[in-house]
Design a protein around this nucleic acid. Structure first.
Length: 453
RNA sequence: GUGGUCGUAGCUCAGUUGGUUAGAGCGCCGGUUUGUGGUACCGGAGGUCGGGGGUUCGAAACCCCUCGUCCACCCCA
């Protein structure tokens, strides 16, 4: 049998893990600086927590966990006989794998509402699972990195999360563009072309604009029941990227006016903090997720920035404000706003740009190698002293010719090798070779610690 | 879930109309080198040709099924 991981999943090697740890570390650090506290929720949730939250399609993409024990004995015989998977499911599985971090978060907030103080700010970096058909950059197991705040409808948080986006991407060495819109603008737009009742359809159609073009979006809109005139007018209005003129054109729609007003405030706050950041109002930004109700964001790589011209990647982050997230779990009506970093995509971008810091390349800094058996214990003791000084040191486990440890250090990209023979032990000195330059010097332990610190 | 593409060594891939013992490059292991890795030269290991069934005197190649991959939809990160 050829060993392999299940479809849509992958292993991470040490060199990949060092990069992932770095990326998650930058995220964690910024989340905490911005006042978000970590939480974790289980890999499995009760199926009742998950089903119905992602729409019909989402339910199909849930990984279900088979009940333990003699599950068939307790299964619904009628449904099994009829080969009706949907009907049989309830008696076969009561748990499912986490599909995203937002729904478990909503469950968490309601379940712990009496222990939490609001506004409650949390972040989470955890894998999620989807029974989707895998493609490049699309897996059945992948990590999500979310920061959310619930229990306040202050626009301060919209501005804060935009700042969090830019701070993180800047720390990673990436120039990005933050696109922003408001569901109210889209609602006002639908209202002004007489399609208020087709709001969801309008949103999902607009979401496809950059992908399939205005013409086909127009056709889709007409297919969904818009008048030809309404569809044309809608597409015409979307060409306008000036927030000022939207304020005017939507002044007679309640939601549209409110949306434009809120957007303006957020943009003003953000501009006051960092006028250099590219943040663009984009009325065509829709985001498919149905639960957004206020501002929505999406982050893309800035392809006008030096060194980033060739990057072709979809959004590397997104988010928005939602109302009533906790409603499904019987919580009181709480507004929230949150963002998500597309860690797997960011990884690919950093890989393409080779924008990793040097620290991800090396694990161990120095390898100590004894030439003969009687010096091995001394080499091991020196390794221990280096470790006590906080230096990632390792001792080659077999004494002998330098060839093996040298080759090992070369492959493992350990930058320094100390060869230890009787000469070194008797003089209490270490002969240290730097592999990239081939240069060699003799130092005592404290000198070596200073050199490698 | 729908349509398509491709599965040959650890990796990237050759393999003629179906015909002897299935190859290359890279990688891996060893040697040339008994206190010095990366280069060079020499040698070696490694394949039920994704799996199962069928057609045939004969299948890596043709047919069916199945699993996996990649791509386009759907949806999404």
């Amino acid at each position: 049998m050829k060993p392999s991981t299940p479809k849509g999943t992958r292993d991470f090697t040490p060199s990949q893990m060092r990069k992932r740890d770095y990326l998650f570390g930058v995220l964690r650090e910024h989340f905490q600086t911005f006042g978000y506290a970590p939480i974790e929720t289980p890999a499995m949730e009760n199926l009742s927590t998950l089903t119905g939250k992602y729409g019909e399609e989402g339910d199909q993409l849930l990984f279900k966990v088979l009940n333990n024990g003699d599950f068939l004995a307790k299964a619904d015989g009628v449904a099994l006989e009829a080969r009706d998977s949907k009907a049989a499911l309830a008696s076969l599985s009561k748990r499912g794998m986490r599909y995203d971090l937002t729904v478990p978060f909503a469950r968490f907030v309601v379940q712990h509402q009496n222990e939490l103080s609001f506004p409650f700010k949390r972040y989470a970096i955890q894998p999620v699972w989807r029974a989707d058909r895998p493609q490049k950059g699309r897996y059945q197991e992948f990590y999500q990195c979310d920061a959310d705040v619930v229990g306040s409808d202050s626009l301060l948080y919209e501005a804060e999360l935009v700042r969090l986006f830019e701070r993180v991407y800047t720390a990673l060495g990436l120039k990005c563009v933050i696109r922003i819109n408001h569901r109210g603008i889209l609602a006002g737009l639908a209202e002004s072309v007489g399609a208020s009742d087709k709001f969801i359809e309008v949103v999902t159609a607009i979401d496809k604009l950059d992908k399939i073009g205005a013409e086909r979006v127009g056709e889709e809109l007409k297919g969904k029941g818009l008048t030809a005139q309404g569809a044309t007018q809608l597409l015409e209005m979307l060409k306008d990227t000036s927030l000022k003129s939207w304020e005017v054109s939507l002044a007679n729609t309640k939601e549209g006016e409110q949306g434009a007003k809120e957007l303006k405030q957020v943009l003003e706050m953000v501009a006051a903090m960092n006028p250099a950041q590219r943040i663009e109002f984009d009325p065509t930004l829709a985001r498919g997720l149905s639960y957004y109700t206020g501002c929505i964001f999406e982050v893309v790589v800035d392809t006008t920035a030096p060194g980033q011209e060739k990057i072709r990647m979809g959004s590397i982050g997104g988010g928005g404000r939602y109302a009533n997230l906790t409603e499904a779990f019987g919580g009181r009506d709480m507004s929230g706003v949150g963002i998500s970093f597309g860690a797997e995509r960011i990884y690919d971008v950093l890989e393409e740009m080779d924008a990793w810091p040097d620290t991800v390349r090396t694990g161990r800094k120095i390898l100590l190698a004894a030439m003969d058996e009687e010096n091995l214990a001394w080499a091991f003791a020196k390794t221990d002293q280096l470790r006590s000084a906080g230096i990632a040191a390792d001792c080659y486990p077999e004494a002998g010719k330098p060839k093996r440890p040298m080759k090992y250090a070369d492959k493992e990209q350990i930058p320094y090798v100390a060869l230890i023979g009787t000469r070194e032990r008797e003089a209490e000195q270490l002969t240290v070779k730097e592999l990239t330059t081939g240069q060699q010097e003799t130092l005592d332990l404290s000198g070596l610690i200073i050199k490698l610190s």
